[in-house]
């Protein structure tokens, strides 16, 4: 069975069972391996993509729900970033927001959504937005330094 949707602005068709996980369709069928699996059950956020502009966990989204909708992955979101997102991505690397990088695509997608509605989030707003994204490497400090530059730096 084939399902049509927009992937990073391009029309695509995916074959598969309607209950296939969007995560697998993206990674295995459409070659978008930037989206990662960290748990497969909605706990880690590594698989976050945007569905019609809102962050969702692609390990929990069945393919049929994507029909006719807009999916954006980390590849699309970071291809030509503008404004606050571009600045944030640059700072993200510079301030130690990335270590192993396995959590990073999910965090970038979540942050892109936050920044789209709030260009200068506070530390607390960033923490709330990232509540569903686990990072085992950074202790989250490097991530917060990148996003809440108003905080005093060491």
């Amino acid at each position: 069975m084939s399902t049509a949707f927009l992937l990073n602005g391009r029309a695509v068709e995916a074959d598969g069972h309607p209950m296939s996980r969007l995560l697998d369709v993206l990674r295995e069928q459409l070659g978008h391996t930037g989206t990662k699996e960290g748990c497969g059950e909605g706990e880690c956020g590594a698989c976050t993509v945007r569905l019609d502009g809102s962050p969702v966990l692609s390990c929990l989204v069945p393919l049929f729900q994507c029909a006719g909708r807009r999916i954006e992955t980390v590849e699309g979101i970071t291809a030509a970033p503008e404004g606050p997102l571009r600045d944030a991505l640059e700072r993200f690397v510079a301030t130690g927001g990335v270590q192993c990088g396995a959590c990073t695509p999910g965090i970038v997608v979540t942050l892109a959504s936050l920044l789209a509605s709030n260009a200068t989030p506070s530390r607390e707003e960033v923490r709330t937005a990232l509540a569903g994204n686990l990072c085992r490497c950074t202790g989250y400090e490097g991530i917060l330094r990148a996003l809440a530059p108003a905080e005093p730096e060491r």
């Binding site: 978008h32 391996t33 590849e75 970038v108």
Partner: peptide
């Protein structure tokens, strides 16, 4: 490796 990790290319 920072940008490759941020962009999903890694």
């Amino acid at each position: 490796d920072g940008f490759a990790k941020v962009s999903g290319a890694a």
